[in-house]
Design a protein around this nucleic acid. Structure first.
Length: 223
DNA sequence: GACCAGGCACATC
DNA sequence: GATGTGCATGGT
């Protein structure tokens, strides 16, 4: 009987073998990564790329510029990312933390204990657990495991957690059974997303899945 | 035309 | 604490 840690490592090896390193997060600067984390909420990444390109073209990919921009103007620029009114407000909430508390110095925001950073990020309206963890891992380069909808599906369908497991329970599943390695956490989450896009959607297509050889449920909940 | 996407806040029970 | 709903564009 393989331990949870051994199973998680075997999953990782199978995903890496199939897909190769994902080299996440696409983004030229930590600030761009942070903005992308908000824009990609429940949204296809292709749409986010268009919104980010618009921000660059308009000279708005800057904490002070976003802070000063009227919400309606910001919303129009990020329109392709969807939910543009609400995301404009969320971006302004997030840069308010950066500008008002850290004088726009993103390195200052990212330094200090990870759990304190997480509390600060989650306290921002519009930044939930996944967005906060994405920022911590991919923008700050600090070790925290990012859980998303695909993580729920993959782990539940392979019997690693009960389907009712919470976000933090899933996060602990990975963090308590793997070394706290930024590179590993980075690739693992990216590989789960890659897997999910192709095989582990709401209506899964399991034929050819790299985890096909591992035990899994044959009846799927649509979540 | 239905379904889906790298969520979150808020209302209601 | 659990469940339901609004937010919105663009690809399959």
């Amino acid at each position: 009987m393989a331990s949870t840690g051994e199973t998680l490592k075997a999953f990782y090896d199978a995903l890496l073998e199939r897909f190769g390193p994902q080299e996440w997060w696409p983004g030229e600067t930590p600030f761009e990564v942070m903005v992308g984390a908000v824009l990609t909420q429940n949204t296809n990444w292709k749409n986010v790329e268009k919104a980010v390109a618009n921000l660059k073209r308009e000279g708005l990919l800057d904490p002070f510029r976003i802070h000063a921009a009227p919400p309606e103007r910001l919303a129009e620029v990020i329109r392709p990312a969807g939910y543009y009114n609400i995301k404009a407000r969320r971006l302004k909430n997030l840069v308010a933390l950066l500008v008002d508390e850290f004088d726009g110095d993103i390195d200052a925001l990212f330094s200090g204990p990870v759990d304190e950073l997480r509390r600060r990020l989650v306290a921002v309206r519009g930044v939930g657990l996944e967005t906060a963890d994405s920022i911590i891992l991919y923008a700050a380069g600090r070790p925290t495991f990012v859980v998303d909808a695909y993580t729920f599906r993959v782990t539940a369908r392979h019997g690693l957690v009960i389907p009712e497991a919470s976000y933090d329970e899933l996060k602990s599943l990975f963090e308590d059974n793997l070394p706290a390695d930024v590179r590993l956490f980075n690739e693992y989450h990216a590989l789960i997303v890659r897997l999910g896009k192709k095989f582990c959607r709401k209506r899964p297509r399991c034929a050819g899945c790299p985890l096909e050889a591992f035990p899994h449920e044959t009846e799927f909940e649509t979540f």
